[in-house]
Design a protein around this nucleic acid. Sequence first.
DNA 1: CCCATTCTGTCAGTCTCTGCCACTTGTGGC
DNA 2: GCCACAAGTGGCAGAGACTGACAGAATGGG
Lengths: 189, 189
Amino acid sequence: MRAIARDAVRARISEVAVDLFDEHGFDHVTVEQIAAAVGVSPRSVHRYFPAKEDTVIGDPAGWGEHVRDQLVARPSEEPVWEALLASYEALLATPGRNEEQGRKAMRVLGSTPALRARNLEKHLLWARMLTPVVAERLDGDHRDLRAETIVQASLACFDIALTAWAEDDAAESAVALLRRSFGALQPTA
Amino acid sequence: MRAIARDAVRARISEVAVDLFDEHGFDHVTVEQIAAAVGVSPRSVHRYFPAKEDTVIGDPAGWGEHVRDQLVARPSEEPVWEALLASYEALLATPGRNEEQGRKAMRVLGSTPALRARNLEKHLLWARMLTPVVAERLDGDHRDLRAETIVQASLACFDIALTAWAEDDAAESAVALLRRSFGALQPTA
DNA sequence: CCCATTCTGTCAGTCTCTGCCACTTGTGGC
DNA sequence: GCCACAAGTGGCAGAGACTGACAGAATGGG
């Protein structure tokens, strides 16, 4: 009911903010300007997004759960590395992701230290969700440390692929870059 | 001459700040309190550290160069992954690193999102320094993407090892944890 | 139509961080 | 010893992000 309107407003703020950041640079745009452009009060912007950076990042937890659910659904005989790759691919294939808007957001995201940092925090959140699932698939000693290493490495691949995809002007698809990045590493048996 | 005094003051501020953060939590300590505890003005604290978080992180660029120099000094026939491991080990073995102070800093560092974020930014800086060096050691196609993947994965290993070292109460040395984390991954030939 | 819930705007306030200017303090030349 | 000169410091004012509190407006169900 009301949740629909809420999501719509949220998406609108995010869209306007990314456009402004793309044009003028992240730290040359104030929350007040974003609010004025959307037509709401600055206070409301902060109600939808706890921090200015979050207007670009979006909701990390939601997508993280998505990836985790994909991962637990993979067949247990599949090697971890391939299962992780498949889970990220499923995320990229999700509909409702505007191609051009996503690329612009990634470009803005890479342009400012504060944003890159907040984005990497998202990865830590994902890592906490994925590590237990990965640990279950491992044998041998020190499963926790190994699982965390593998998960963080996979997240690094994900990030590298998306960054490269946003910079290179559509030279290659995000999935292709993701596969290649994953191909550069291999967990030890 | 004067640089010595400068470094001393800098170290002193950092030490006091970490202690306060450890006791009261990062965001319950204001810059004003740090300044008062050290005996300088808040304005001066900001002269030494551009951001509050930097009192814990220290100077990333300096250590990053150190790692890079270690890496370029490794024999060229050595596999990249081992060369990277050795470079990080050399960093950990650097004297002048107070064991207990370092562990406390790492603990504080993991306790607050803002600090974790800033720490991850340090990794990006290191990555930009190390990637070209690693790329030179690779053969085949897509060296840049593969080099970046390998470097970021190694930084993840470094971070995981240090975090585990700070949490587990000296159960194992940082170097041992680092080796094990590195052991969980392998670049593909 | 009325009521309760939710949303929004306004206001006041804290904290980080930055420019600016005046003041003090060492440093080197004479 | 004295005097420019640079460097460091403190205080002040201000921008900007973010938070809590409260009052009015919109929306849903009865």
